[in-house]
Write a protein that binds this DNA or RNA. Structure first.
Lengths: 106, 106
DNA sequence: TGGGAAGTTGGTATTTTTACCAACGAAGCA
DNA sequence: TGCTTCGTTGGTAAAAATACCAACTTCCCA
């Protein structure tokens, strides 16, 4: 069994992905690096909110950033996180199947 | 790009895994189904706390449960979630490497 | 059928997360 | 150098997550 400390470290990474906005940012960056302004304009949220979401992803080691003139460029540091999506999609589809089953039964 | 609603559904699944205790439970169940009492005895936490963690995992569709006499048996419904661990481990190792790099520089 | 064991649910206090606004720091340009 | 644009940081209020205790339900067995 993994230790609580090990689990805590792992959960901190997973926690960074556990927010819809941050998931969308990861999806966006999966298509290539993007300047902050472009990420920000994708959402109807305050820029400080987006900046903090990016900080969470950065501190988890999922994205990295670098300055380029006026812009701040963000890049996906761990593209493997998109592997998560395959399993998540499978779980969602399984859940839907199960719900349909319940509807048939009831 | 994925929609906010799609991202919300996905993040709900990921959120269910974003807790050290729940990660440990998944790791435990990855070695085979287990009765509640055995899961519970792994932690120094109130049984109601464990029960609620299991409910979170169940509502996400990650585990399932069934009654067997006095026991409640829990089982991993979506074993693919353990795939997450490979990427998470990679991210952690990458983070450590980066830290060491900083230490060398400084 | 009464008692006990096994889990779940309700209630609540504490902590964490999230989003906004406002103010600040950094970098290029007039 | 002053201006402006870009993004971050600080502060705060609201919402969500977490853990405990206590009470309840269910199911087996005497």
């Amino acid at each position: 069994m993994i230790s609580f400390q090990e689990a805590e470290i792992r959960s901190n990474i997973i926690k960074a992905l556990a927010h819809p906005v941050r998931l969308m940012i990861v999806d966006l960056l999966n298509h290539g690096q993007k300047p902050f302004s472009e990420i920000n304009s994708t959402f109807q949220l305050d820029k400080s909110t987006i900046s903090k979401h990016l900080l969470v992803l950065k501190e988890a080691g999922i994205v990295s950033s670098r300055k380029d003139g006026h812009d701040m460029i963000y890049e996906l540091e761990a593209p493997c996180v998109t592997d998560f999506f395959a399993c998540v999609t499978a779980v969602i589809e399984n859940n839907i199947r199960r719900q349909e089953l319940c509807l048939c039964k009831g």
